[in-house]
Simulated scan of single mutants.
Amino acid sequence: MAFEVTYTDCSAETYQEIRAIIALWNEKSPEYRVKTSGSTGTPKSILLKREQLEASAKRSNAFFGLNEHSRVLMPLSPHTIGGKMMLIRALVGNYSIHVVEPRANPLEEIDHKSRFSFISLVPYQVKSILEETPDSLNRFDCILLGGMGLSLELEKTLSDLSPQIYIGFGMTETVSHIALRKMNNPVYEALEGVELDISEGSLVVTDSKLGIERMQTNDQVKLIDSKHFEWLGRADFVINSGGLKIHPENIEQLIADQIEVPFIIGGIPHETLGEACVLIIEEALPEAQFEQLKALIREKFGKYAAPKQQVIASILKTENGKIRRKETLKALFK
């Protein structure tokens, strides 16, 4: 089976973007311009080299066992690094890829008899699929989840499925994932060629395959060794309350399955604590439920991590469903 692209219910924009990526690849362009997701700040345009994209694609194909006999389903926007790399992996690996228009549940339009070797999804898609067509996930040999935002409860639910499920760690600058962890295992393992270090609590990445030398990230981690780490949160998202560093992402993971509307944990100025944790949410929770959540957070992370109040505000997101935390806080406290 050679490289081919088939489509289900795709918009003209998605189709045209995919054709443009394929054409650029076949022309052997030496550089490719991509945009960062915007989840940690204003999206920016960066250049990636063809050899970086090819090396990343070969490494991922080898890890997931994808070859000319594979069939992959692509439900991600081709405008994102995740979507682009799914397509480039298929080009490099010479296998077929079936494209479906990105939406909350991209599997509802797919023939229920179809089986695939691989799919990459973002957390909001997984949540929608589990609510609407959970059995459809068993049609895949392997599932890669990108982005952060999986609740502990969601991970437990996914662990009951038959596919192998991995969660990726990476960014546009590292040409998608450079480390993976298995479901219900908090430890990420670096891929071949990747060496990890730490500086001031934040992860430093060296990748011989991609020509990356000591790239400083804003990701705070517990470094186990040069190949393994536990992710704690973004350094620029840390809330300093009562002299303690609180990672809002950990709190959000704990309570995500108990809140149905978009929310984040944020920090606001406080006269004595420096910053105080608050629950920023699109619709207020009943007071009794809010008190239960505070007790749960207090038990797990201590009294300073429990939100002092609820703040009603719109939660801004990227097209892939990632929360734009900085923009949300900036708009709220402007």
Rank of each mutant, 00 (worst) to 15 (best):
G274V: 03
I21D: 01
N218A: 13
R19S: 09
I251W: 01
L191Y: 00
L254Q: 10
E271D: 10
Q258H: 15
I265M: 14
T174F: 04
K245H: 02
E101Q: 11
V261D: 06
I81W: 05
R181H: 10
Q16G: 03
K300N: 06
S29P: 04
E319D: 11
K227S: 10
F140P: 08
S117F: 07
S136I: 04
G267K: 02
P307V: 04
E108L: 04
E282Q: 09
G274S: 07
H270R: 10
E27I: 00
W231D: 07
L154W: 12
P43M: 01
K303R: 14
A62R: 07
T8D: 12
K44E: 05
A276E: 15
L161Q: 13
T206K: 05
I143F: 06
I315H: 00
D9H: 03
A90N: 00
T42K: 06
S11C: 14
P248L: 08
N218D: 13
Q216V: 05
G201L: 04
G149E: 09
K222G: 09
F237V: 09
L24P: 01
L66V: 04
P248V: 12
S45F: 02
K49Y: 14
F3R: 00
M74I: 01
M171T: 11
A179M: 03
I22T: 07
